[in-house]
Lab assay of single mutants.
Amino acid sequence: EIHIRTNGEEQARKVYKMLAKRNYDVKIEQHNGQWVVTAS
C-alpha cells in the first residue's frame, strides 16, 4: 500500500488520476487538513 501526502486538493487529484490509470485502487483522505492519497 502506498501513502502519498500532498499539499492540496489539486495535487491530490493529479496523483489520484495518475495512480488510477495504473489500475491501483485509490482513495483520497484528509488527515489534519492534509490530503493523503492511498493506493493499493
Rank of each mutant, 00 (worst) to 15 (best):
G33N: 06
R22G: 05
S40F: 12
Q34G: 08
Q11A: 10
R13Y: 10
V15I: 15
G8A: 10
G8H: 13
E9Q: 07
Q11E: 12
Y24F: 11
M18H: 07
I4Q: 02
E9N: 03
I4N: 01
V26Y: 01
V36R: 05
E9Y: 15
Q11T: 08
V15L: 14
E10Y: 10
N7M: 08
I2T: 04
Q11V: 08
K27F: 06
M18P: 01
Q11H: 11
V26W: 02
V26T: 03
I2D: 02
G8N: 15
V26S: 02
K17A: 13
N23Y: 15
Q34H: 12
N32H: 07
Y24K: 06
Q30L: 11
H3M: 13
A39M: 11
Y16I: 04
R22Q: 09
Q11M: 11
N32G: 10
K27T: 08
N32M: 08
Q34M: 12
T6W: 04
Q30A: 06
Q11S: 07
E9V: 09
M18K: 06
K14G: 04
Q30D: 05
V26K: 01
E1N: 10
I28H: 00
A39V: 15
K27Q: 07
H31F: 12
G33W: 03
E10V: 10
R13I: 08
T6E: 03
Y24G: 03
T38D: 02
Y24H: 05
G8D: 15
Q34D: 07
M18G: 04
Y16D: 00
Y24Q: 04
Q30I: 12
L19K: 01
N23A: 08
I4D: 01
N7K: 09
K21D: 13
V36L: 09
V15A: 05
Q11L: 10
W35T: 01
N23M: 10
H31A: 08
T38F: 09
Q30T: 07
A39D: 02
Y16L: 07
E9P: 11
R13M: 09
M18I: 10
V26G: 02
V15T: 03
V36K: 03
H31S: 09
H31R: 11
E10A: 13
K27R: 11
H3G: 03
R5F: 14
S40K: 13
N32I: 03
Q30Y: 14
